[in-house]
């Protein structure tokens, strides 16, 4: 009885994992050789930076904002990582910390002046891009060896990316979904007034979430250059929309503090795999972006159907 009552809610939570599984099975069916350590590594190694960017975006969405600058920001981190961090590590580390501080300041600005985050972050995206071009005018640079070493770590049974993605999902899950302050952070997205009436500082929640976004955005940039070995200011511009799609695909919603960190990681992986899947289908590249959108619509339509079933209950 109770099990059947819970079905739609359970389905809704399981949908991201379900979509990933279906996609993975389809890929294995089309290309059995992908079912190997090497194959999985090839398929998924770019998923980790996207997962980090998605988590960054999710932090912002938690407090009912949207970050349209995360792609450019990841590009700036990549540029810094491939130049200063390698040549003068202290300066590089200071610059990266500075970036996180700017993110925190953006949160404060948006809260105090009551500005629309879309406008602020879109404006900032040009600043990030400009700075990245100043740091690294032409593609190139050299990635510090330790980053390279981490990203090419050979782990037993499954590729490093998978362990890392699971680790990120679980850590953020405990931080935001299970910890007691995480509840307040999510509450600030659900009903800010209620949270401030209970005596919490909304400024602090916003600054915390933006700083976290800056931190995960940094991890995204560093993990990306660990894979590519060199950087380019424009390397991650498409991450902005990918990260938003990843959050939504993972069961999050744009407003109301409804998020799912594990879902977001899965969403990022699904998006990465969708691209490979379409290549395996030998779909002409012209059609791929449209088809990727099609997959997104399909999953979201499923969610709408589940929500309806739940409402009818």
């Amino acid at each position: 009885m109770i099990a059947t009552l819970l079905t739609p809610r359970f389905l809704r939570n399981a949908l991201p994992a379900l979509s990933l599984t279906v996609l993975l099975l389809a890929i294995f069916y089309l290309q059995p050789r992908a079912m190997s350590y090497f194959g999985l590594n090839l398929l998924l190694n770019l998923a980790l930076p996207i997962a980090f960017a998605t988590i960054a975006q999710m932090c912002i969405i938690t407090v009912n904002d949207l970050d349209l600058g995360v792609g450019a920001y990841v590009g700036l981190v990549a540029a810094i990582g491939a130049t200063w961090l390698n040549e003068t590590p202290l300066l590089g580390a200071a610059a990266l910390l500075g970036c996180i501080a700017v993110y925190a300041a953006l949160g404060a600005l948006i809260h105090l002046r009551n500005l629309p985050s879309i406008v602020v972050t879109l404006g900032m995206s040009f600043v990030w891009l400009g700075l990245a071009l100043l740091v690294l005018p032409t593609p190139g640079g050299k990635v510090p060896d330790w980053i390279r070493a981490i990203m090419t770590l050979k782990t037993p049974f499954l590729p490093f990316t998978i362990y890392a993605a699971i680790g990120v999902g679980v850590i953020v899950h405990f931080g935001l979904m299970r910890s007691s302050y995480g509840v307040v952070l999510r509450g600030a997205g659900g009903n800010p007034r209620s949270v401030s009436r209970a005596g919490w500082s909304l400024l602090r929640t916003k600054v915390t979430m933006f700083a976290l976004a800056g931190f995960f955005g940094m991890l995204s940039g560093l993990s990306l250059i660990g894979l590519t070995t060199s950087a380019d200011a424009n390397i991650a511009l498409r991450y902005t929309l990918l990260s938003i799609a990843g959050v939504i695909l993972g069961g999050g919603e744009f407003v109301g503090g409804r998020i799912s960190p594990i879902g977001a990681v899965i969403g990022a992986m699904t998006l990465t795999l969708a691209a490979s899947f379409l290549s395996f289908l030998r779909l002409p590249p012209d059609w791929q972006i449209g088809a990727q959108g099609g997959i997104l619509i399909l999953v979201l339509a499923f969610r709408a159907v589940i929500n309806r079933a739940e409402a009818r209950r």
């Binding site: 509840v183 999510r186 009903n191 209620s194």
Partner: peptide, 11 residues
Amino acid sequence: SLCPNLTVAEN
């Protein structure tokens, strides 16, 4: 003034 996205206990 409850947070609709949180559980009863979390509120």
